[in-house]
Design a binder for these strands. Structure first.
Lengths: 217, 217
DNA sequence: AAACTAATTTAGACTAGACTAAAAAAAAGT
DNA sequence: ACTTTTTTTTAGTCTAGTCTAAATTAGTTT
């Protein structure tokens, strides 16, 4: 059996390993708001259980089994988020903390039935892909941050980089929902803000926002 | 904040206090499959938090606050069981262990929305009443075990005393569902088994079963 | 009421998972 | 290549929640 703590570590290592396959003690500590020494301790335990490849001072990667576990936790997290938004009418900025708890509920049968109940969704409310029961993520869509677009480009909002509540509420407020089509009317060189055209209305967003919005291409 | 362990204790004390307002260290230990010494430790902690009235060697009762907490956990447990059966098509004998986990999810908003989503049910799949958001149980139905009925009596099955899987599966098998109307055709003195008439068919159940089936009166 | 038995508590030990402070290794700067 | 800084690990401590074994209290029997 796995403890909640172990699951949190595996998930964090998975997320941090996305770009560049190895991650470091300090990065994990930062992600979990813990001290580096605590992380070292846990990495040894996870290595004993063959869920990570860990070499002192050299960073850590997930084993095949560790990755599978991480993917199943992410699957649970995203399915529960979907449930909360589509069935219980939560807003997309309200669901993270609750899903953070629900993702640790231990029942494969439960999660598969939830998946079926929701109609086997492929994406969660934030546009993130949901792994299937085998841990496969089949996201054929390619995306880039809005900040990579040039004047005159257009695209559809399909996700966010940073899913914190404040940012999501801002997006709601400005009408920047998933699926919204945007057109880059202008980029202002002095602060790299973007003037967008959305449904024939204009809206200017900061550089910060442009880096957090994912656009399909 | 409350730990999972603390919640388990409060729930156990609540259940054991139903008949006779005080319960004992040993009873709690048995209910939670723990050692009496562990229970003593925890009772002190719960008393410090003012959730129980505890006097050494004299047994324990819940305070008003402790009782409210216990009722909220039971509310969560029963609402989740209802969700699992009515929305995810679990059988009534499959939901207990999962609900045992879900009952500890900490979000009042979540549980109130779940309640609404389910249409504010008053009873769970086992016929047990669901406390409302204020902890009120308004179960106006009176029930007695089948074993209290006499020859010629009739009534409706509205609950079970012991909700273990094996017993529930037996009931399913024999067609003894909640809401089923039964008529006591005969009681056999030699083993106190009950011959019932259900939808014009006859079925004999053991004394054990007769003590576990609750009949409305 | 003394003696026995059962229930309960105390005392001390263990584990998981966190921490702090100090030591060691790696990386970066000169 | 040597020194300094940063990162990581080690060593030792703490807390929550469990345990065993021994001691104490309560309840029961004679």
């Amino acid at each position: 059996m796995r403890s909640r703590s172990e699951e949190d570590y595996l998930k964090a290592i998975y997320s941090l390993s996305i770009k560049g396959s190895s991650t470091s003690t300090n990065e994990i500590a930062k992600a979990l708001t813990m001290k580096a020494s605590s992380v070292t301790d846990m990495l040894k335990k996870l290595a004993d259980k063959k869920w990570v490849n860990y070499i002192k001072y050299k960073g850590v990667t997930l084993t095949k089994e560790g990755k599978q576990i991480a993917l199943q936790i992410i699957r649970k997290h995203r399915l529960w988020e979907t449930f909360l938004v589509t069935n219980l009418n939560f807003k997309w900025d309200e669901v993270h903390d609750i899903a953070e708890q629900l993702e640790h509920i231990d029942s494969i049968e439960l999660i598969n039935r939830l998946d079926k109940h929701l109609g086997f969704p492929k994406f969660d409310p934030h546009g993130d892909p949901i792994p299937d029961k085998n841990g496969k993520i089949q996201d054929l869509r390619k995306s880039q941050p809005l900040s990579d677009l040039k004047k005159g480009d257009k695209g559809i909002i399909i996700g966010v980089v940073d899913g914190t509540s404040i940012f999501l509420r801002y997006l709601d407020n400005e009408g920047l929902n998933l699926g919204t089509e945007i057109y880059v009317e202008e980029i202002f060189d002095f602060d790299f803000s973007y003037k967008l055209k959305i449904n024939n209305k204009f809206l200017t967003v900061s550089e910060r926002v442009s880096k957090n919005l994912l656009i399909q291409f």
